[in-house]
Structures are given as C-alpha cells and as structure tokens.
C-alpha cells in the first residue's frame, strides 16, 4: 500500500515518574508497530521548559518519533493521543522530500558528532 513518512512530536505531562513516562512512550510506539508502521528514528529531548504554561504546567517531557506508515494509521493514532490525558500536546507532520533530506543530514551530523568525541579522547590518551 502507499506509505508516507511522518514525524510526531508529543509532550508528556511532567507530573509522572520516570517509569510512567517510559511506559507512555512505549505504549505509543507499540501502537505504531501494531498498525504496521516502522519507526525509523526516535529522539528523546527529555524535560524541557515550555515557552508558555500548558494546563498550568511550565515544563514538559518532549519525545520525537519518525516513522513511515500508511495514511490510514494516522487517524486512530491521533485519537489515541487525544484520549490519553497524560499527553498534553502532540503534532504530527507529513515529511516532504526536503524534510526527509534534512532529517537524514541532521542524523549523519549527529552520528559523526558522536564519533568525533571518541576519536578526540582516543588521541588524548594516545
């Protein structure tokens, strides 16, 4: 079937403990996997300060998931977001070709940024 690339960023309420936030993230990733989407990239931005208070809270746990799936997967995925009250905000965007290119180039930059410190520490020891 025709598949699109999507990118979802969602914010989890900061009130939860670590396991609960992990469990929420796991719940949505499994929901994606069950409906036949495959996740290409994930980013955990952790606890960040919000620019304006949402539901009286001024910090939130950001999580980004990049996946490709059939368009029919998105609607139930979003209703699940709306139904779950631990999620205070979410945004799903369809990735066009420039966006995909950008995301890949960002990932390579991050990848070689991770390798670089290893080399520099290796040189330091050498």
């Amino acid at each position: 079937m025709f598949r699109n690339r999507y990118e979802t960023v969602f914010i989890i309420t900061p009130v939860l403990s670590d396991e609960q936030t992990k469990e929420v993230v796991k719940k949505f990733k499994d929901l994606l996997k069950d409906t036949g989407a495959n996740i290409t990239h994930e980013e955990n931005w952790g606890m960040r300060k919000l620019a304006y208070p949402i539901q009286k809270k001024s910090t939130g746990f950001y999580y980004l998931v990049e996946f490709d799936a059939e368009p029919s997967v998105i609607l139930p995925f979003e209703t699940e977001f709306r139904r779950d009250e631990r999620i205070i905000r979410f945004l799903t965007t369809k990735m066009d070709k420039n966006h995909i290119e950008f995301a890949e180039s960002r990932r390579d930059r991050e990848a070689d940024r991770r390798e670089k410190p290893k080399q520099s520490t290796a040189e330091a020891q050498a």
Partner: peptide
C-alpha cells in the same frame, strides 16, 4: 506557527 503550537516559541 508549528513551533508555537509545540511551546518551543511563545505566542
């Protein structure tokens, strides 16, 4: 506008 929705930028 997307960044504002995600509270990365203030309104």
């Amino acid at each position: 506008k997307k960044a504002r929705h995600l509270a990365l930028l203030p309104y």
